[in-house]
């Protein structure tokens, strides 16, 4: 005698009351994933600015002028590949921290990525960056 297996046509559905909880847990998971990514960056120590009148005499500090695509060390254009080695050589004979100050003057149109490359190389060579920013003053002529 054949015994028929009873086939149940019941549809087993997950309880719909749990969907809200599932969504809640998914959101918490993705939020935690997003918030654990820490910012990474490069520390830079800059001295506070002080107003100084333009001096006639040349300072003994190294001066770096940053143009749009090239940097000049004490007036001489230096290729990016040689820049750090050149600065390291100039700073090698200066043991005092105050002599390691490198005055950085940038043109208005210098992009941030190039400025960052130059200033990073100055710091890696052992220099202490000081920004030279020209202040604009309006003078009324009578």
């Amino acid at each position: 005698m054949k015994i028929r297996r009873r086939s149940s046509n019941l549809l087993i559905e997950p309880p719909s009351s749990a969907t809200g909880d599932i969504a809640f847990n998914l959101i918490v998971f993705f939020l935690v994933c997003a918030s654990v990514q820490p910012d990474s960056g490069r520390h830079q120590t800059l001295p506070r600015s002080e107003e100084t009148e333009q001096k006639e005499e040349k300072d003994k500090n190294i001066e770096v002028v940053v143009k749009r695509q090239v940097a000049l060390v004490n007036g001489d254009p230096v290729q990016p590949a040689e820049f750090q080695a050149r600065l390291a050589a100039l700073l090698a004979g200066k043991p005092r921290p105050e002599d390691k100050v490198v005055v950085v003057k940038s043109d208005d149109d210098v992009p941030y990525h190039f400025w960052m490359t130059v200033t990073s190389q100055i710091e890696d060579a052992g220099g202490i960056i000081t920004l030279q920013i020209e202040e604009e003053r309006e003078v009324q002529v009578p």
């Binding site: 910012d39 990474s40 960056g41 490069r42 830079q44 800059l46 600015s49 920004l131």
Partner: peptide
């Protein structure tokens, strides 16, 4: 300049 003037410890996010 503004950050350094107020004594902020600058971190460039790169």
């Amino acid at each position: 300049e503004a950050i350094s003037n107020v004594g902020g410890e600058l971190v460039h996010i790169v």
